[in-house]
Write a protein that binds this DNA or RNA. Structure first.
Length: 614
RNA sequence: GGCUGCGUAGCUUAACUGGAUAGAGCACUUGACUACGAAUCAAGAGGUUGCAGGUUCGAAUCCUGCCGCGGUCACCA
């Protein structure tokens, strides 16, 4: 059996074939649910046909309406409002639709078959995760689930940035001020411990810098400044990075450490391994709390030299060119993207070269046909350039490259600033939401019979669900405002609201499972609230497909809220346990069960799991 | 300044990609637990979709120009 949307489309098509000998293109046929304020179930927009048929919209609508009631058994009535043809379905259609929904072989057509590597998360090893990472992680994970759902084979991966000057700062601070203490000694989560060292370095450096500003060397630098309009504080604010490189003893030590690391100095490498292991231990704990996984991981310490071969290749193909100083460039001005360096004069590679190398290496390993990079929108330009180069290099995976770009997460006070201490820590945030759930559950008796461990699991499911839903309901590319109070909210358009609809149905199942039959063929006169739920269920497949094709979990988030809301309303207005007849009871019970199934499957695509009780 | 993204109720947001009277949540006011779970439901109030033009049966959506806010324009990653 086919869906009603398809049936209507086919019949409209054949109407135009019969009456006008026209092959109507499918995109002209727009069928949607009828708005609640009008009579009818599904609506066909007939404005586009007026030109084709050379008649007034009302007249053509009327004719199509008559045609459909004759040719489709499902459609028994229609009315016309302006250019909108509202169609009403028969009682038996709704009964068979419910039957169809409960026996679907797959909820979503598996139309895609590509192998895709999806990169997400990709943290820096010198500090623990914050709010921005959470958005990245939840988004990447959810988009991956959506793509799998439409048939793609998705490989989840990340590149941990575990090398460079930043991690050396943490290492140096630990060596100088850490007194040999370990995270376990101090009882601090190990990635936070590494982050603390990084902060320690920065405050030591800050102190050093302030002291230096009183020296005569600083006077000389200030007096020889180019921009004479700057006063002393403003100048030294900007000069910080130059100071780090030119005068700072701490900066010097950090850079030496980096050099030693690059030349494989055993002592530095041992310290580095210790640090990065601490980070990774902590990272894995947080990832586990968020219930996200990686099929493989790369570390920049292994991959940062990749891509050099590609530079030579690009030169041979005349895609790149060399300047007199030996540096290698690509000219992308014809694609409105400027000239871009891909290798320095001294032969070392830059960021984008690494990315070229990593992409190639992945292809050799996984033979994928495309890649998705989950990275903030501050790097939009970088990815345009990267994709353009890959295209010009004619790489086999150039076809399906996508920068899953998301907006920054702002706080009510503005942008998060490490220096101002306004960064919202991921672990703190997770704990805070769960604590809110614990508080909220006091005074409820639904969970009384459970052990404290079982209760705690439920609190986590709800808390994490609330956080995930809050982060995913906003369209990815938009910047989002993170309001700490709203993020732990448990009512209204939230994750727990949707979980609650599911829990109510689980409770019904526990109560009714044994006494419900499968037959409801004599159920007549469906209530509008029942039809509304069924219509929402029918939309599942197309919503998932749309969300996946647009790489946008927020579409799923809205849809699931809509489904839950429609169900809550039905549940409130019509009793299932005390239905008037066995057929009515059976119909409603099965309607509820399918709702629960769609809610659970849909939330899974957002990475959110469902509790049985709450 | 160049490129780029975004402006919708007090706040956070949606609108099937051009369709009907712009739909929700929070906050505010009010009602519903002796029927399946009130983390729920219902009602009220709240809008010149930044501004001005244009395209057409029809515009939050497309085009042009302004205004405002972000991002980015490193031989950093």
């Amino acid at each position: 059996m086919t869906s009603i949307y398809k049936i209507i489309s086919i019949q409209v098509k054949s109407y135009f074939k019969e009456h006008f000998d026209i092959d109507l293109s499918p995109d002209k046929i727009v069928v949607s649910e009828t708005r609640p304020e009008f009579e009818g179930d599904f609506t066909l927009v007939v404005f586009p046909f007026a030109g084709i048929a050379r008649r007034k919209p009302e007249i053509i609508a009327d004719e199509i309406g008559s045609y459909l009631t004759k040719t489709c058994v499902e459609i028994v009535d229609f009315n016309v409002v302006k250019g909108f043809l509202n169609l009403s379905c028969s009682n038996s259609y709704w009964l068979s639709e419910l039957q169809r929904q409960s026996s679907l072989a797959q909820l979503v057509p598996k139309t895609e078959t590509e192998k895709i590597v999806l990169e997400y998360s990709s943290p820096n090893a010198n500090k623990p995760l914050h709010l921005g990472h959470i958005r990245n992680i939840l988004l990447g994970w959810s988009v991956g689930q959506l793509l799998k759902e439409i048939g793609h084979d998705v490989h989840f991966t990340q590149v941990v940035n575990d090398r460079g000057i930043a991690i050396c700062k943490s290492m140096l601070a630990w060596k100088k001020f850490g007194k040999g203490a370990t995270p376990a000694d101090l009882g601090i989560k190990s990635d936070h411990f590494v982050g603390n060292s990084y902060v320690q370095f920065n405050s030591a450096f800050e102190e050093e810098y302030v002291n230096w500003q009183t020296t005569s060397a600083a006077d000389d630098v200030f007096n020889s400044r180019k921009n004479v309009t700057l006063d002393r504080p403003a100048f030294f604010k900007k000069y910080k990075n130059d100071y780090f490189n030119a005068y700072s003893p701490l900066g010097k030590e950090a850079r030496e450490m980096l050099r030693d690391w690059e030349s494989n100095d055993e002592e530095v490498r041992a310290l580095w391994r210790k640090m990065t292991n601490w980070f990774m231990d902590g990272f894995k704990q947080t990832a586990a709390k968020l219930d996200v996984h990686f099929d493989s991981m790369d570390f920049e310490s292994d991959t940062y030299l990749l891509g050099k071969g590609i530079v030579q290749e690009g030169l041979n193909k005349n895609i790149f060119y060399q300047e007199e100083d030996g540096s290698v460039w690509i000219d992308l001005t014809d694609a409105k993207l400027d000239k871009k360096i891909v290798q320095r004069g001294d032969g070392t590679s830059v960021y984008i070269t690494q990315d070229l190398g990593t992409a190639r290496t992945r292809y050799e390993k996984f033979n994928m046909s495309g890649m998705i990079y989950t990275v903030g929108n501050e790097q939009n330009y970088h990815f345009q350039v990267l994709f353009e180069i890959i295209k010009r290099m004619n790489e086999p995976y150039a076809g399906q490259l996508y920068h899953l770009s998301y907006g920054m997460v702002d706080l009510p006070s503005g942008r998060m600033k490490t220096r101002e201490g306004t960064v919202v820590d991921a672990d703190d945030l997770i704990e805070e939401v769960i604590e809110k759930v614990r508080e909220n559950s006091r005074g409820r008796d639904e969970l009384d019979m459970l052990s404290s461990q079982e209760k705690e699991n439920i609190f986590q499911t709800i808390g994490i669900g609330a956080l995930k839903y809050y982060m995913l309901r906003v369209e990815a590319k938009k910047k989002m405002l993170f309001n700490p109070e709203e993020s732990v909210e448990l009512k209204g358009q939230t994750g727990p609201y949707i979980q609650n609809a599911f829990v109510r149905i689980q409770s019904l199942k526990r109560r009714l499972n044994d006494e419900i039959g499968n037959s409801y063929e004599n159920y007549k006169n469906l209530e509008p609230e029942e039809k509304a739920v069924l219509k929402a269920i029918m939309a599942y497949g197309q919503e998932v497909t749309a969300a996946a094709k647009k790489y946008d979990p927020s579409i799923m988030a809205s849809y699931l809220y809509h489904l839950a809301r429609t169900f809550h309303r039905f549940y409130h207005d019509h009793s299932i346990v005390h239905a008037d007849s066995d057929d009515e009871k059976s119909f409603r019970y099965h309607l509820a069960c399918i709702t629960a199934n769609r809610l659970e499957e849909g939330m899974k695509l957002l990475g959110i799991s469902m509790p049985d009780r709450m």
